[in-house]
Each structure stands twice: as structure tokens, then as C-alpha cells.
């Protein structure tokens, strides 16, 4: 009988002492928890992506509860729902979160751009771009080694025919890829509205661009003249669309001789 009873008692006693010890310790050494921060934290998606500009969801929640910021709409992954929930907790105005999605502004696939180097070095865009401007002919285009793929917390980016592409269903517009891309090829694009987009960031002069890529913007200004809303401008031989002004009429696309400007409507499934 004792053979069973003594071990049971001893193990139970150790467990009890440990449990009681922990319970007492958690009261004695209790840290004052910021209840507001905790509540705000629950409204956030918890991806710790840093799109809000703080160290993570906890950092943003702490900043809000301490009154360092009063903006509730900094969380792009959480979108309008999170902004509303935070505003309710904090008693502030929610503000609008414009639904955006990231997109790679480059068409430099193997059909349009030729490779000038047989690159077998480190598989990283950041490093490859420093070696004669990368393995491809275009020194402004996507290298396709996937620095953005690695940094994306939602696995939304993939490489297709040597160019990064973003799956809008998975993208939460956290801007991690935008910060990472050594060539600043990724932009936020408005969701669910028809807008024109320039899929090129080549700032070389027209003739030079022509040699580098078949679909590169040559800065011919035809789109600027065609645009009735005044949304298209050309800076440094590369067209740019102001998404606020663009009405999605498609005149610029019809005018473009190289086909680097087109109408897009990105929606989530």
C-alpha cells in the first residue's frame, strides 16, 4: 500500500508546492499591465510587420495607450476593421484606411530583357545589383532573386519568369517588400478601382531604355498628352500616374507605343 501511496503523496506535494509558489510569485512580483494597451493589442492582427512605423503590434498598442500617437488607422494589414476597433477602445476618430495592395512595377521578364551576365554569385538582389548593375540588361528592373519573397510575412510574393509578382489575395500592404527592394520597384496600388499603372521604373533616356528592355518606358510624353484628367506626368524619362486623379479611362494605354502603361483593377477573392 505504502509503495503506491508515498510516491503519489510526494509527487502531489511537489506539484502543490510548485503551483502555490508560482501563484504567490505571480502576485508578489506582479507587473502593472496596461489594460488599454492590452485591449488595443487584441484589435491588431499580430503580424508584427512594422507597417505602422512601430516595433510591432505591441509597440503600436503601447504608443496608442500612452498617447504618443492618436492615429488609429496606421495598421494597413488590419484595415478599416482594426481602425474602427481601436477607435472604439481609445475613444478616438477612426479615420479611413485606403485599401491598397502592393504591386511590382516591372515587366522585365525573359521575353523583354536579355541577360548580360552569367551570374552565379550570391542569390540576393541586394548583392547582385552591385555587380555591374545586376545580371540583366536593364539596370532599373527586377532582378528576380527574391529578396522581397523572403521578407514577405504573408508569403504573397513569388517569382515568375524572372520577375517578382504579388498575389493580391495574400498581400496585406505591410510595405515590407517596398522597404526591401533595392530598386524601389514595388508600389502600393489602390484596390478594387480601375486605375492606370506604369509598369516601368527605368529613368534612362528613351534610346537607352529601348536597348535594355522591349517594354520599358521611353518617356515619349504621349500618355501625358492623351490623359484628360492630368494624372500622368513624366519625370526623368519615366511616366508616373497620380492614382487620386486617374479616372481609369484608358487613353494613356491606347497612346503608349511600348505597352508599359495599362489599366488594372486588382481585387481580392
Amino acid at each position: 500500500m505504502n509503495q503506491i501511496l508515498i510516491p503519489v503523496i510526494i509527487v502531489a506535494a511537489i506539484g502543490l508546492i510548485a503551483g502555490l509558489g508560482l501563484a504567490i510569485a505571480s502576485i508578489v512580483f506582479a507587473m502593472p499591465v496596461d489594460e488599454k494597451a492590452e485591449k488595443v493589442r487584441e484589435c491588431l492582427p499580430g503580424a508584427n510587420c512594422g507597417a505602422c512605423g512601430y516595433t510591432g503590434c505591441d509597440g503600436y498598442a503601447a504608443a496608442l495607450s500612452k498617447g504618443e500617437t492618436t492615429e488609429c488607422n496606421l495598421c494597413t494589414p488590419g484595415g478599416n476593421d482594426a481602425a474602427k476597433a481601436i477607435a472604439e477602445v481609445m475613444g478616438l476618430e477612426a479615420g479611413e484606411v485606403m485599401p491598397m495592395v502592393a504591386a511590382v512595377m516591372c515587366q522585365g521578364n525573359r521575353m523583354n530583357v536579355e541577360e548580360k551576365l552569367d551570374y552565379s554569385g550570391v542569390h540576393s538582389c541586394k548583392i547582385a545589383t552591385q555587380l555591374f548593375g545586376g545580371p540583366k540588361n536593364c539596370v532599373h528592373g527586377c532582378i528576380g532573386f527574391g529578396d522581397c519573397v523572403e521578407v514577405c510575412p504573408y508569403e504573397a510574393i513569388f517569382i515568375c519568369d524572372g520577375v517578382a509578382r504579388i498575389n493580391p489575395d495574400k498581400c496585406k500592404a505591410c510595405k515590407m517588400c517596398i522597404k526591401t527592394c533595392p530598386r524601389q520597384l514595388i508600389d502600393l496600388f489602390p484596390l478594387d478601382t480601375m486605375k492606370a499603372a506604369v509598369l516601368c521604373k527605368n529613368h534612362a533616356k528613351g534610346a537607352e531604355t529601348r536597348k535594355q528592355c522591349k517594354a520599358g518606358c521611353i518617356g515619349c510624353m504621349k500618355c501625358v498628352k492623351a490623359c484628360e484628367a492630368g494624372a500622368v506626368t513624366v519625370e526623368n524619362f519615366c511616366a508616373k500616374v497620380d492614382y487620386d486623379k486617374c479616372i481609369g479611362c484608358g487613353k494613356c494605354h491606347e497612346a503608349c507605343p511600348v505597352g508599359c502603361i495599362d489599366l488594372y483593377k486588382i481585387s481580392k477573392n
Binding site: 511537489i14 509558489g21 510569485a25
Partner: peptide
């Protein structure tokens, strides 16, 4: 049992001090 409880305890104390 003992190690788990101990580490929890240490964690609580570390968090405070």
C-alpha cells in the same frame, strides 16, 4: 515538473527586476 515550475518562476522574477 520542477524544471517547468522553476523556469516559470525565474521568468516572473526576471520580468520584474
Amino acid at each position: 515538473l520542477v524544471i517547468a515550475a522553476l523556469v516559470q518562476l525565474v521568468e516572473i522574477i526576471l520580468k520584474k527586476y
